[in-house]
Every structure is written in structure tokens, then in C-alpha cells.
Amino acid sequence: MKLLLDTCVWGGVRSALANAGYDVIWSGDWEEDPGDEEILARAYREERILITLDKDFGELAIVRGLPHCGILRLVNLSSQQQIVICLQVLEQYAEELKTGAIATAELGRLRIRPPD
């Protein structure tokens, strides 16, 4: 499964996900931040699920209708919790995310909005 981590996601999540067999890129490695719209567009072009802490991506996808290949938003998680939650959600809800679902995950709670 292909993933794009937004800059706001702790960089250590990238190695943990790569070690688990995921194809991961992190926008923190890019020379400059292209902005949310371009990050979402790149994830879509490359068929990657976007992982972020930023709620603006949900607005871009839902309100503005920008195309995406699934979004996982992490809420109020420490760096280490980001790893654990990402691995759990990706393992259990990969198919939903691949079809364009938007998942919001925090400790003890997961909400999934299926694609329209």
C-alpha cells in the first residue's frame, strides 16, 4: 500500500511504516511545502493514502470535492501513538481507505466517512 505522510506527521512514522512493508513518502523531505492542495493532488496522482494531523484536507475533499485516494487524520496523538494508531488503522481498514474513505483516529475512537 502506498502512503504519503504530511509534514506535520512525526518523521519517525515513516520508518515504522516502511519497516512494516508500506511504500511511504514524507512531505517533510521536500525542499519546500507546496501547500495542502498540491499535497492532496500528489497523493491522488500517485494513488497514495494521505496521513495527516491537519483537518483542512477533509475540507478540501468533502466541501471542495477535490479527488483523493483516502485520508487518515490523526488527532491528539503523541509521536509514538501516531505509529501505533497508523499501523492499527491501516491493517484493519485498508480496503475502506483505498476506496476513498476519510478516517479520523484518536486514542479509543475511530470515525470513518465512506466515499460518496
Score class of each variant (00 low, 15 high):
residue 89 V to S: 05
residue 91 E to I: 01
residue 62 I to Y: 08
residue 75 V to Y: 06
residue 35 G to F: 07
residue 83 I to V: 15
residue 38 E to R: 14
residue 92 Q to R: 14
residue 38 E to I: 12
residue 96 E to C: 08
residue 67 P to C: 05
residue 48 R to V: 07
residue 53 L to K: 15
residue 65 G to Q: 02
residue 50 L to D: 03
residue 75 V to A: 04
residue 70 G to E: 05
residue 88 Q to H: 15
residue 35 G to L: 03
residue 71 I to V: 13
residue 52 T to I: 10
residue 91 E to F: 06
residue 50 L to I: 07
residue 66 L to N: 02
residue 69 C to F: 05
residue 94 A to K: 05
residue 83 I to K: 10
residue 95 E to M: 04
residue 79 S to G: 07
residue 34 P to Q: 13
residue 70 G to H: 07
residue 35 G to D: 13
residue 86 C to D: 07
residue 33 D to P: 09
residue 84 V to T: 14
residue 44 Y to V: 08
residue 70 G to T: 03
residue 52 T to S: 11
residue 89 V to H: 01
residue 81 Q to I: 03
residue 82 Q to Y: 05
residue 40 L to C: 14
residue 41 A to Q: 14
residue 42 R to F: 07
residue 67 P to R: 09
residue 45 R to S: 15
residue 71 I to D: 04
residue 86 C to Q: 04
residue 53 L to G: 13
residue 37 E to N: 11
residue 88 Q to G: 10
residue 62 I to S: 05
residue 87 L to R: 01
residue 80 Q to S: 14
residue 81 Q to G: 07
residue 50 L to H: 06
residue 74 L to C: 05
residue 73 R to C: 04
residue 94 A to T: 08
residue 69 C to Q: 05
residue 55 K to L: 00
residue 78 S to V: 07
residue 84 V to I: 11
residue 57 F to Y: 15
residue 74 L to N: 03
residue 40 L to W: 11
residue 36 D to Q: 06
residue 76 N to H: 10
residue 87 L to W: 00
residue 43 A to W: 12
residue 32 E to G: 11
residue 89 V to I: 15
residue 55 K to G: 14
residue 59 E to H: 08
residue 50 L to F: 08
residue 64 R to C: 04
residue 72 L to H: 06
residue 73 R to V: 08
residue 82 Q to I: 05
residue 50 L to Q: 07
residue 54 D to L: 10
residue 34 P to T: 12
residue 53 L to V: 10
residue 85 I to C: 05
residue 31 E to Q: 13
residue 87 L to A: 02
residue 59 E to Y: 09
residue 73 R to N: 01
residue 53 L to C: 14
residue 88 Q to R: 15
residue 69 C to N: 14
residue 85 I to M: 08
